[in-house]
Design a protein around this nucleic acid. Structure first.
Lengths: 216, 216, 216, 216
DNA sequence: GATGAATGAGATTTCATTCAT
DNA sequence: CATGAATGAAATCTCATTCAT
């Protein structure tokens, strides 16, 4: 009775939201259609009415997550003209994005567990990292031209590096905390970690750093 | 009939092996007890005879994985006396370990999905990274003392860094390949990536590198 | 296909009826969910849809049995004003109730085997013997006041006596028949038995009977 | 190792003892072969070695119970020459027998649930109540001849009566306690109940009691 | 006599999905 | 749009029983 001829678009969104949560916490096979429906105060049939199958619902969840990511990235305005500062902002932005929405990491892991099976079914998801990579490319190219960064930096490689450093820390928090016996979840621990990432990535990019080959 | 009381220890091992594969590919909830039994040419109740429940079997799989990791690490002899070379060897070793046994990454992701729930049930797994961290600590301390590395390097932080760089690349291969449209699975691509990791980590550790703060 | 959303209340009732039969004949552990479902021309998950678990189904069966008993007792109108006749009617009524619905005895035995475990889970069943005991109390008090019955009779004790005499005969029919080699199931044998119960109980209650202590 | 080439007869007895307990508490279908074996510190196979199947073990348990009953009854010496006192002794003896070994009632109920199916398979169990009934018959006949009891009392009927009164009280203790809200398990409650049985049975048998028909 | 390992059938329960209204 | 009732397939787990030593 809560419901009753409500806004269908809203219903759809709500299903997606609850499904995102469910699949992120429990994975595709662990996620339960009933539970999602129950959390929407909806009969199970509605999920099928809107999404046709559990699998298609999962794909929709993935797509929606990618959209969300891209939209967030679109908001991303790296205002400063200092490339080093811009890089730092991008890194911090990336860490925060992963930390603030833990479903991203979980859903991506899930997808990789399935070897990209569901993602491949989606047409629209190719340019996932589009805006962020564009910004990054812009920043790096300018940094190289300015001589602030060393030449021939590959934006994708840079991205992969700081992404890995952000992602892995958050993704493997639980096992690492148990195995290393080290606090990784407190605000301050995480802040220190991002600082480290910024440091190592800056070192890697800045022109001042000696080329490794020279050192060796 | 093939079987009938062959070698119980062998049977146990076989179950663990097939279960490791099943859970790594499909996760805890996706993994099927029947399938594991079938692959062992065993009736499914034998899994319960040996492991009592799916959950306990999963924990045993995790424990076995950790043991495998530790044993591998124990074999790890970084013979060289050059700290920089030793660090490089540790990094390459880590990447190879993750690449050669993909179940490690999948099982760890699975455990993190469950927030460490099963790992916590296991007594023995605390010092998971023991030998590797010991070696790393030894290498780093020597490097610092020798003046090859810059002072005050924290071994755990170093470990987290190159581990992240190895892990994330392999763990997220599929989504990254789709989203970035870039080859990540070929031998050569992976070789290039490890080289990059070695480079960035060396830069971070070597004494010759200027402290970031000075640059900034 | 026969079914498909006929009448849910009817379905529920049918499940309860078949489950009552199953559990009465085979006990809780002997009763099979499959069989109950099959007898209802229903797929077995429907039992879970309606009752959530075998145990809860069993509790529902017990509750329903108690309701049935109470309802039957409510119909019980002991019209005569002669207390002795009324007592006789109550006894015959009790015997008939046990004989006509053999599930009562079996389910009660089952519950006692479990030390009342399931019954305790049910809120509503306290006043099981309510109406019958009320009527009995009414009859006995009048009988005492009238001087037809001897004074200070305890209705509960009276009830326990004739209940035992009715119940045990029917409940242990099979072993008794084998061990004593005596017909206990024929209509006439049972009639003779009830007559005996009436006789011994009347003797116990009637004022004319000498107090035992006096005899002794 | 506790065991090791033990006395086979003793082993057999132990199995019977634990099986008696198991089946009495949980019924035939509820009883578990594993549990019985475990409680004997014995591997399951031994149960099969000694008893061939769960069913045959159950039959053996029933037979053993009947033997125990008969042996106890054989010890029964009603020495007094006063028939009324002898009757009272028999009643108290019966109640105590049921109370002191609760497995008797449970196993009998179980057998009756199965409509005597297993009992019928046993050759030896016909004359179950033999000694007790013999004693009772002796007592009653003497009582009738002496004029202490009224004439034409049927020993089997007398037996059925006090047996019912003893049995039902103990068998249905749990449901009755819940439904009537009355203490039935304390020593004193039970003592009062047996006194009542003695009273009503004496009244029924003694010559002083007026025939009902005359009263009516 | 005794055991540990193995089995097959079947038990309860779960779950994605569909039908009729 | 929405639902409650129903289904079929399959999942986890149990249990009496047997085999080889």
């Amino acid at each position: 009775m809560a419901r009753r001829h409500n806004d269908p678009a809203r219903t759809r969104e709500q299903i997606l939201a609850k499904a995102t949560d469910e699949f992120a916490r429990l994975g595709f096979e662990g996620g339960r259609v009933d539970r999602i429906a129950a959390r929407c105060n909806l009969s199970k049939n509605m999920l099928y009415y809107y999404f046709h199958s559990k699998e298609k619902l999962f794909v929709a969840v993935l797509e929606r997550m990618y959209e969300r990511m891209r939209d967030q990235q679109r908001d991303l305005a790296v205002r400063t003209s200092d490339p080093a500062v811009a890089l730092e902002q991008l890194i911090r932005y990336t860490f925060n994005a992963f930390r603030d929405d833990p479903t991203i990491i979980r859903l991506m892991n899930e997808e990789n567990k399935h070897k990209g099976k569901y993602l491949k079914k989606s047409q629209r998801v190719r340019d996932l990292y589009g805006p962020l990579l564009e910004t990054l490319t812009f920043v790096i190219e300018r940094g190289c031209k300015d001589g602030v960064f060393r030449p021939n930096l590959d934006p994708v490689t840079i991205y992969l590096m700081f992404c890995a450093l952000c992602y892995h820390y958050l993704s493997n928090q639980f096992t690492l905390e148990i195995a290393l016996g080290r606090d990784m979840s407190s605000e301050s621990a995480q802040q220190r970690w991002v600082d480290q990432i910024v440091e190592v990535m800056s070192l890697h990019c800045l022109a001042g750093s000696p080329s490794l080959r020279k050192i060796a």
